[in-house]
């Protein structure tokens, strides 16, 4: 009867509801991202105040950069180590807490608590504890293990950075897994037991498939997150020893902010964005293959 049908009003409400988020994305994500793309085509000398169009030169440099290759390798190790350790530990903790035991609430609280400690404080504390005469080696000493100089060895530094990050954040994934585990119907286990399936079989054949949507979600968040880990590296290792822990985001920071190569830094930013976007897309595409009952 009028112009404002229910459908039209609905459309308007829809646009109004998404407007704040959309305008925000435009102003604070897309336009800045476009500007980064533009910087990557320029040589920008910050101190001298010159800004010069150089076309694809930065991208050629990207292809020839050996340090970038080292950094990509370090990034891959870091991301792989982090995701595997984080998800395994999160699942292990969730399974343990899902047992019928008194006091699991207490343990749940304790495992979750590092999530709430501010990142800088957490890293600062670990930096001191990982010194050769720090608490970590004192504790290992109690177990008769002679700990290494954690932050000075190439592989031990990488392990340290991963472990510190996992302990900080594994609580989040643990809680998500715990909720998923509690959603698995008990009769399924009973039936499997009657069929003679052992604990391990029940876990791999029932639990894992049923919680696969959660595994997908946590692995996406964890992988994307692992490519953004910056402050921890900056405080703990500064990318060393050698360049063993110089992950891509840290290399980008070095080039842009420390070496003043803003144009080249922007080029690495573009690469990082492409990698993150590709990884997310692949995982999202793969979900149909290995996630049960995706709607």
């Amino acid at each position: 009867m009028t112009f404002w049908t229910y459908r039209r009003r609905d459309n308007l409400v829809g646009y109004l509801f998404v407007a704040p988020a959309l305008l925000g994305s435009l102003a604070f994500v897309l336009i800045p991202l476009g500007m980064v793309g533009w910087y990557s085509l320029n040589e920008w000398n910050v101190l001298g105040g010159t800004f010069e169009f150089i076309g694809g030169e930065n991208y050629q440099r990207l292809l020839a950069d050996e340090k970038l290759r080292d950094s990509l390798v370090a990034t891959a190790w870091f991301a792989a180590g982090l995701v595997v350790l984080n998800l395994t530990l999160a699942l292990l903790l969730a399974v343990l807490l899902n047992q019928k035991l008194r006091g699991t609430t207490l343990f749940r609280t304790l495992f979750f608590s590092p999530v709430l400690v501010s990142l800088v404080a957490w890293t600062l504390v670990w930096q001191l504890m990982l010194q050769p005469e720090g608490s970590v080696n004192d504790l290992l000493g109690l177990a008769g293990v002679d700990g290494p100089n954690w932050l000075r060895g190439e592989s031990s530094a990488m392990v340290s950075v991963i472990v510190v990050q996992v302990i900080k954040n594994v609580g989040l994934n643990m809680v998500l897994f715990l909720a998923a585990l509690q959603g698995v119907p008990a009769p399924l286990y009973e039936a499997a037991k009657i069929d003679g399936a052992g604990a391990w079989t029940r876990f791999t054949r029932i639990t894992i498939p049923l919680i696969s949507p959660t595994i997908l979600l946590t692995s996406i968040i964890t992988i994307v997150g692992s490519l953004q880990v910056f402050a921890q590296i900056a405080v703990l290792t500064q990318g060393g020893p050698g360049t063993s822990t110089t992950v891509l985001i840290y290399y980008l920071y070095q080039q842009a902010f420390q070496f003043h190569h803003f144009g080249y830094g922007a080029t690495i930013s573009v690469l990082l964005f492409v990698i993150v976007a590709a990884l997310t897309l692949v995982q999202w595409r793969m979900r149909r293959k290995w996630v049960l009952h995706e709607s």
Binding site: G14, A21, L33, V36, Y39, Q228, I249, Y253, A256, S269
Partner: peptide, 25 residues
């Protein structure tokens, strides 16, 4: 509403960008 999916993807881009990338602009 029309354009919904496109707009959603536009918004999702933000999830993929570390803050170091856009801090200068």
């Amino acid at each position: 509403f029309p354009g919904q999916n496109v707009l959603f993807v536009v918004v999702l881009t933000g999830l993929l960008i570390p803050s170091e990338v856009t801090i200068v602009p």
